[in-house]
Design a binder for these strands. Structure first.
Lengths: 230, 230
DNA sequence: TTTACTTATAGTCGAAATGACCATATATTG
DNA sequence: CAATATATGGTCATTTCGACTATAAGTAAA
């Protein structure tokens, strides 16, 4: 980085969040309805302006919380999008974040400049303002890569979950079917899962064991990367 | 993204480039010496301010060219760094890019605000201004992940190269030794390489076949990702 | 003109992993 | 108790892996 020069500023830097939600074997994306401004009434990715004194990560978390009520989730940076005309009235570069969550763990509370917040099926997304549709497309594509090489997606299930739930998550993201038996074998080899002492309840078939993640193994895999070809 | 508000601006958005260079089995990083400004005389990552009318990608390429003379290389976004105090005099968020090149294909021509430009061994990097040392550390770590899952690094060798050269590249990045025979087997399976009609010359031992990349396979692998555990 | 040395290239082999199946267990519902 | 869910574990031929050995082809030194 070199020195400031008078012609160097841009108008603003924003954040946009891609929050992928998982529920009943389906993958959703979280959108908010703009309650004011030039795109009032339209659905868009939750996001907003970065302010002084907060890091980019902090801005992402603050905005997500104030717009949707979702707090304390781990988001990772996806990419910065900076085409000169991506925003209509001025020059705005946006930094996109993404995360995967279990929808059932969060209730949506629209706030700040959002008049509504809702989950949309990943395949039934409305027309979004700016370049949000292409950001979403890019993010979904990256997600497919990530799940194969990082233990991502392991924080979006309930605390305790069945192996089938985990498999359905992978099937939803990768948009493919997987062999149950082979999927289990791969997981076992990774040693990432621990049996809990509980079993599934209130199902009309044999109850499955509930599993949990082994935090220590998780951290190691996060650092070194995994190879989870399916 | 929501609407503009008066307290939303940051001071500036910059670009920093991590250009990894490969030469004779060693991995280097490209640095420039600041010729003016608050860190005059110090070595730093090539970078500068994004201006109106250019995309973020375009800014990265323009800056790299004007500072170091390196033109027309493919850089990818690494990450945005935005701690509030990373820059001393004002609030600056920077977007880091990275690339891998063959040093011998480029001659360094310092220009613009750079008084010098040079390759530094990745393990002998001086103290850099701002958070450049930690950006470099992060980038090097990511690079190790990337080479195992993308056909990255396949554009930083000469047009035609021997299999040993390719292996040495991977060894330099991953900081490990690899088995020659098994490395070849993995490559063969990928079908990414084509034999050229030439052989190595002027070496004091049996000459090796020179190989080239198969462009069509390369594009496919780039899109779908590869699994190149070594 | 041997011989030593260097790198290239191909092959071996037991162990491990993979993918496509099949079998049995355990629960609920009619 | 039969039908039907899902759970869970096993089989097996094929492929891949990792560590290693063997031979080939060239230069340089003796």
């Amino acid at each position: 980085m070199t020195n400031p020069s008078p012609d160097s500023i841009i108008d603003a830097l924003s954040i946009d969040c891609l929050i992928f939600g998982f529920k009943n074997g389906r993958l959703d994306i979280l959108l908010i309805k703009h309650g004011e401004g030039i795109s009032e009434g339209r659905w868009a990715l939750p996001g907003g302006w970065i302010t002084y004194g907060e890091s980019v990560d902090e801005a992402a978390n603050r905005l997500l919380k104030s717009l949707t009520g979702i707090n304390n989730i781990y988001m990772e940076q996806l990419k910065a999008f900076g085409e000169p005309n991506r925003y209509p009235t001025k020059r705005v570069v946006t930094i996109a974040y993404y995360a995967l969550v279990n929808e059932e763990n969060y209730s949506l509370i629209p706030g700040f400049t959002a008049s509504d917040a809702q989950w949309f099926n990943i395949h039934e997304v409305p027309d979004l303002p700016y370049d949000h549709n292409s950001i979403l497309k890019y993010g979904f594509q990256q997600l497919k890569h990530y799940v194969r090489h990082e233990p991502v997606g392991f924080n979006l299930l309930p605390q305790k979950f069945t192996l089938l739930q985990l498999q359905e998550l992978y099937e939803a993201i990768l948009e493919t079917r997987l062999d149950k038996s082979n999927f289990r074998r791969k997981l076992a080899k990774m040693k990432l899962l621990k049996k809990s002492d509980e079993k599934q309840k209130d199902v009309s078939h044999r109850a499955a064991e509930l599993y949990q993640f082994d935090k220590r193994v998780y951290v190691t895999l996060k650092r070194n990367g995994i190879d989870f070809e399916l």
